[in-house]
Structures are given as structure tokens and as C-alpha cells.
Design a protein around this nucleic acid. Structure first.
Lengths: 350, 350
DNA sequence: AACGCCGATGACAACGCTGCCATCATAACC
DNA sequence: GGTTATGATGGCAGCGTTGTCATCGGCGTT
């Protein structure tokens, strides 16, 4: 008696559905039913088959499956280099759900400015007949991508898109309200001159955040000052430049709210040059609660969005075909994370 | 005359090889030959076929291909949550080469401690008969993964593995030398008491770096002091704890070399508590040149490894089957990146 | 002129699975 | 008891491609 079961072939050809069928003494069709959790299989048969599947470590071949049916068990994740942390978190969430459901993930990094974008997406989708695609910003607002997906009749879910599209499914937080909340928080601390660093103009959430900022000011009866609103592009570098502009104003703001953490971190770096102590001389707030927010000193007050949960939700929508049957918009809650980078303005009471 | 060519069906069924064959007036087999760049096709025929392929935006179906041939055009990237920046850079490099070669990327995030690891990997590989797999640390040193891959007869390339395995292909930098160089640089600045924060014990590169540090000390005739070498785990949190230990020593080091940037950033944060000015009171060096290294203040002196290039090389090895035919070890050059976090020790001349 | 060779091309099976339909036994109905 | 519904199962075609082998013509050789 050898310790390893003799019928388990240790060579490298994986077991096929035929092997399982033979071992279980049923037809391949029945094996298929069991594996796909279909009904109309007796418990006894199901058990026999399961046993054989286990014993042979049988896994249905993804290609054969994809060829024979409409279901590819493949989800696509398309992105265009936003921050590494953002994508990483997203990917973890996506993979979690995929694993649970037996799906696989194909990722593709695209360039939103590439004129061939549409063709690239179309190729990807038709080649591998993806079950569905997840679009992260800024791709979710890129018409060429949407068109290609529609042309290929491929379901997709957009994460944090600029505006709702008829017939499209979205997952998002309320960027407007989140930015509103953060701004209101700063105002509540006593700040009256609050600088804002906008995100990439092509990024929908960036605009919503700016709108939230303006709305909060208005609500508090504070004027919106042109010079306090500078353009950034979500990158650290652009934050450096934006910070430079804001800190060299004759009438400097007492707080700066940046469209994301990377830019806020840049403001921190920038303020050193002007010998400004954070948060004593200047409060700084970011957005995203990425790793940087916790690593810089002082740690950043920021706004956390549940990226992983959002990613998981997107996959679920795709798998359940919710996305296609009845387009949904799912909104998640954000959370204000107050850390050391924000305090009342200099000279304030308390 | 409609502007869009009438023979191009705008419905969502992608063109198949039959459509192309019919349009080009040849057999499907000839189309297959052209698409796969095989020889024995006349130039005239090749051109006709190419024209048809273009016109119909034909792309060979990945499933049919995978089923009919041994080639799956699928590369797997396996990782276990190292730093987001590391994986992101890796992924970009991998995707670049994949795109160029018409391959697709399937990613899977695994847990190195999961007892089911072997089974998971085996499933993935047999299901989708991957062309090859790329293993990042610490997975590249996980026996269960290696075994599963070997059992499935699946080629793989390991990035920065601990030690060479007979018959395995590796891509790496010389971590030993890199750490040696960094340590020597610090010694050159005049430092005599240099703390070291080790990386995760299960991570091969971490050990090589520690060895490099020790060797440089020895070379300079400096003693290796136990209390100056503390254990970390590559995480920010572990860096915080390690920094705490080092900074509370009665005889504090004048420089700290951390096994990666995250931990070095933690030391920066930690030193604030003890009112130490970096780099004036303490020099700090990291490893990886990740985003954090540039974002913290002062910016970190660190060691850059060409992650993207390494990833691209790994894919190339897989595609050319170099990995299987004759296992290779490719070594890339590291680069010392000197920034503001390191200066001569306090009291040094100059 | 007959032969063999080679490059170009096509016919056809096979890849492993699922969808559709047929079959059969058993249970529920009048 | 005969008929119909219902659950369980299997047979078989077909998914779009590639591998194998056959075919066909033209060309160089004897």
C-alpha cells in the first residue's frame, strides 16, 4: 500500500471531465451539472461526483468552458495609472469576490489618451469574451472605452464616474458630500480662508469634490475666492506646484484642502520651504486615506472611501448580471478621518 | 453609399475565423497561419488575409485557441500583499510586455500562510493552463507554491527569491551588494554606529540585505552590535516598533538603515517623538525608492531597483520559454539614490 | 519525359465542455 | 389502471481554433 492513492495520476496532465465521470460511474453531463451547481441531480449522485472531483483534483478547464458556453468566468479590470494604493486596494477587493465565485481576473493598464484605446478595449473583450468589466477613473468617463464596451455588448460597472449614464451601473461614494463635510469641518474649526487643490479635470470625482467645497463655503456664508482654488492633477508633483501657488499668496489661506492625499502630502513638503509649521501655521487635509496619509508627518486628516467594499460590490453586480438587467447605482458611505494635520487657525480662541 | 462599410456587421457578434476566411477567399487554416505568423504562406495570400483581418477587426478567440493548442497566451502574476507600490510597478512592467506579445495577464493575490495555498495554485494553473507564472516575494520562496507549479508542469520565474533553486529561473538585483553599498556609503559619511532594521524573516532579499550590511561593517573594521540590529517585517507598523527600540538605546546610533522605505518612513515618524531632527541628529536610509521615499520629509536616501524592467524581463523569459529550456538567473543593477535624509553624523568634521 | 521534392494550401479531427433534446423511471393525477 | 407531470440522467452536436496529414502544382534532376 503506497501512501499516495494509486489512482491519482501524479503526472502533469490534469484530470478531465471524462476521468471524473468514469470514476463516479456517471455521464460527463452529470458531472457538468454537479460542478455547475445545477439542479436535477440526486443527492447520492452529487456526492459520488463530488468525491471523484476531490480525489482527482478536477477543475473544469476554463477554455473549454468559455468556448462551449456564454460564461467565461473572466472579469476584466481596466485602469489608467491612478495612485498605486488606490489600484492595489481595488484589486484586492475584486480578487476577493472573484475567488469566492470561481472567477478569474484579467487586468489591463490602459492610457486614457491613447487614440487606439477603443480598439484595444474592443480587442480585449472580443478575444476573451469577458463576463464583465470594471472601469476605474478616469477610464470610466472615457467615451471611447464605453463605446467599445457597448459595441461588444459587454457589461461593465464604473467606479466613481463623473456622471450617471443611462443604462450604466455605477459604484461610488458621494464625493460632493464628502468634500462638503470636510470643508464644513474646517470651517467649524474656525478657518475662513480655505485653499482648495482641484484634482484632474477629466476626473469626475474631482469635480464633485470641488463643488462640495464651494457649496460648503456658500452655506457658511463665506466667499469663494478665485485665488484660493488652484488646479492640480492628483499627482504629487502637481501638488507641489499648487502648494507653491497657495503658499506664496500675500494673503495666505489658514487651511488647504487637497483633492487627494498625494497632493496634500506635497503641500506638507512645500510648506517646509516657507518655514510653516503644520498644523500650527497651516492646516492641511487630503482625500482617500491612502498609505501616504498615515506615513507623512503630521499624519493627514483625510476622507476614507471603502475602496475594497466598492470593488467587491462591483464584481457582485457583474456576476449577478445586475449590471445589465437593471442598471444600478450603489453609493457607499465615506468617513472623515481626523488626524493631526488640522487644528483651529492661528489666533483662534481655543 | 453609407460611410460605414456595409460588410462590417455592427452587431455584437465578433468576427470569427470563418468570416475572415470567406472575405479573403482562403481556408480558415490559412488564416490561422497568417495570424500566427507561420511560414509557408505566399506574400499575396498573407496580404489578402491581413486586409480581411483589419476590415473585420478580427481577433482570435482566446478560449478556442487555448483549447485547441498548448498555448494559452495567459501569464499569471501571483503575489501576497507586499507594498502596493511594489506590486503596482511590477504589474505595469508585466503588462507592458504582455501587450507587446499579445498575451493577457491573470493576477491572483494569495496568502502565503494559507494551508490551501498549494491547492489554490494548482487549481489556477490547471484550470487556465497558464503559459507561465511570475512569483513575487514572499511567494517565490514558498515551497507549496513551487511544488504545485512543478506538479502542474507550469514554467515560472521568480522575482528576488531567497536562494537559487536548481532548474528555476530568477530575476533579481544583488541585494547583498546593494545593502553593502548603502552601508559603505553611510560609513563613508563618517557614521560608526549604524542601526539596521531587518525585513521579514521569510523574505530572502531581506536576509541578503542584512548580510550585506554586516559585510560592509566588517570590511570597515566596525563591530557588529546586536542591539543595533532589530527585527522588522517590512510594514510601516513594524518599522515604528523597531525605530522605538533603536531610538531608546542609551547609546543611540547616528544612522539607521531600514530594510525598506516603509520602515524608514516609520523611523522618521518615530524620531519626531524624541525630538530628533532628521538628518541633523540622525541619518535614515531606506530601500526600494518607492513613492513614500519621495513624499516624506526629508526625502529618503534609498536604493532603487528597476522593478519594471525586472518584470518585463520575467515575462520575456516566460514567453521565449527560456525559463523552462535552460533556467536562467538574470541580475539587474541597483542604484543608490542619495537624498536629504543622510548627512555626516553630528560632530563630524565637514 | 518521368521522377521526386518542396512550398502553398486545404480537409478534417480533436481540444473539454455545455446546451438542447431524448429517454426513462417514478409519482401524482383523474 | 391509464395518463400525464416531474425529476434524474445520458447522447450528441457544436463552440472557434490548431495539429496532422493529404493534395496539388511547379521546378530541378536524371
Amino acid at each position: 500500500m503506497k501512501p499516495t492513492s494509486p489512482e491519482r495520476p501524479e503526472n502533469h496532465k490534469p484530470a478531465s471531465i471524462y476521468d471524473v465521470a468514469k470514476r463516479a460511474g456517471v455521464s460527463i453531463k452529470t458531472v457538468s451539472r454537479v460542478v455547475n451547481r445545477q439542479s436535477n441531480v440526486s443527492d447520492a449522485t452529487r456526492e459520488k461526483v463530488m468525491e471523484a472531483v476531490e480525489a482527482l483534483s478536477y477543475r473544469p478547464n476554463i477554455f473549454a468552458r468559455g468556448l462551449a458556453s456564454e460564461r467565461s468566468f473572466l472579469i476584466g479590470l481596466l485602469y489608467d495609472n491612478p495612485s498605486a494604493g488606490y489600484i492595489a486596494a481595488m484589486q484586492v477587493g475584486v480578487l476577493t469576490r472573484c475567488r469566492e465565485e470561481g472567477y478569474h481576473l484579467i487586468v489591463e493598464s490602459l492610457d486614457a489618451a491613447n487614440p487606439n484605446l477603443g480598439r484595444q478595449v474592443h480587442s480585449l473583450v472580443t478575444e476573451s469574451s469577458l463576463h464583465g468589466v470594471i472601469l476605474t477613473p478616469p477610464l470610466c468617463d472615457t467615451q471611447a472605452v464605453i463605446d467599445a464596451l457597448n459595441r461588444a455588448n459587454c457589461p461593465f460597472v464604473r467606479i466613481a464616474p463623473e456622471k450617471h449614464l443611462p443604462g450604466a451601473s455605477d459604484v461610488r461614494i458621494d464625493d460632493f458630500k464628502a468634500a462638503y463635510d470636510m470643508t464644513a469641518y474646517l470651517i467649524g474649526l474656525g478657518h475662513r480662508r480655505i485653499g482648495f487643490i482641484k484634482g484632474h479635470p477629466g476626473h469626475g470625482a474631482a469635480q464633485a469634490r470641488f463643488a462640495g467645497y464651494r457649496s460648503a463655503l456658500e452655506h457658511a456664508g463665506l466667499p469663494l475666492e478665485e485665488e484660493l482654488c488652484v488646479q492640480g492633477f492628483f499627482s504629487y508633483q502637481s501638488g507641489l506646484e499648487a502648494g507653491e501657488k497657495l503658499l506664496t499668496l500675500k494673503n495666505r489661506p489658514t487651511a488647504i484642502f487637497a483633492g487627494n492625499d498625494d497632493m496634500a502630502a506635497a503641500v506638507l513638503a512645500c510648506s517646509q520651504r516657507y518655514n510653516l509649521k503644520i498644523p500650527h501655521d497651516l492646516s492641511v487635509a487630503g482625500f482617500d486615506d491612502s498609505l501616504v496619509a498615515q506615513v507623512v508627518s503630521p499624519r493627514l486628516t483625510t476622507c476614507r472611501q471603502p475602496i475594497r467594499e466598492m470593488a467587491e460590490a462591483a464584481v457582485s453586480m457583474l456576476i449577478q448580471r445586475t449590471a445589465t438587467d437593471a442598471p444600478v447605482e450603489r453609493q457607499f458611505e465615506h468617513e472623515l478621518v481626523v488626524r493631526e494635520s488640522t487644528v483651529p487657525p492661528p489666533g483662534a480662541i481655543g
